[in-house]
Amino acid sequence: MRINFLPSLKLTLKSEGGDVDDKRDPGGRTSRGVIQTVYDAYRPFEGAAASRRVDG
C-alpha cells in the first residue's frame, strides 16, 4: 500500500485541492477541499465574520 501512496497522491492532486465554483456541484464553492458553508460555520469560532470567501 505504501508503494502506491505517492503516485496516487500525485494523480489525485491534478484534479483536487484547488479553487472550484462549479454551479453543478451541490457542495458549492470549494477551496482546497473546504466548502464555503463549512468555512463560514468555522470562522465565528476564530472570532471572524462568516462572510469571507474561502480563497480570500
Results as ranks from 00 to 15, higher is better:
residue 41 A to M: 13
residue 44 P to N: 10
residue 17 G to N: 07
residue 33 G to Q: 03
residue 29 R to L: 02
residue 38 V to N: 06
residue 28 G to C: 04
residue 1 M to C: 10
residue 49 A to C: 04
residue 44 P to T: 08
residue 4 N to C: 10
residue 32 R to E: 08
residue 33 G to H: 02
residue 22 D to F: 03
residue 4 N to G: 06
residue 46 E to I: 01
residue 15 S to D: 05
residue 34 V to G: 00
residue 17 G to D: 06
residue 44 P to F: 09
residue 37 T to W: 04
residue 34 V to N: 01
residue 19 D to E: 12
residue 52 R to W: 07
residue 1 M to W: 07
residue 50 A to V: 01
residue 31 S to L: 05
residue 34 V to P: 00
residue 10 K to D: 04
residue 10 K to S: 08
residue 17 G to M: 09
residue 8 S to I: 08
residue 17 G to F: 10
residue 18 G to I: 00
residue 9 L to V: 15
residue 26 P to K: 06
residue 15 S to E: 03
residue 10 K to I: 14
residue 54 V to W: 00
residue 54 V to A: 10
residue 54 V to Y: 00
residue 4 N to F: 10
residue 31 S to E: 01
residue 54 V to Q: 01
residue 25 D to F: 02
residue 26 P to M: 03
residue 33 G to S: 00
residue 40 D to P: 00
residue 20 V to D: 05
residue 3 I to R: 14
residue 6 L to N: 11
residue 19 D to T: 09
residue 39 Y to D: 13
residue 16 E to Q: 05
residue 55 D to Q: 08
residue 6 L to M: 12
residue 11 L to Y: 06
residue 6 L to E: 13
residue 3 I to W: 07
residue 8 S to Q: 11
residue 41 A to G: 10
residue 56 G to T: 12
residue 6 L to S: 07
residue 27 G to R: 15
residue 51 S to D: 15
residue 26 P to Y: 05
residue 28 G to W: 04
residue 8 S to V: 08
residue 56 G to L: 03
residue 14 K to D: 00
residue 27 G to F: 03
residue 56 G to R: 04
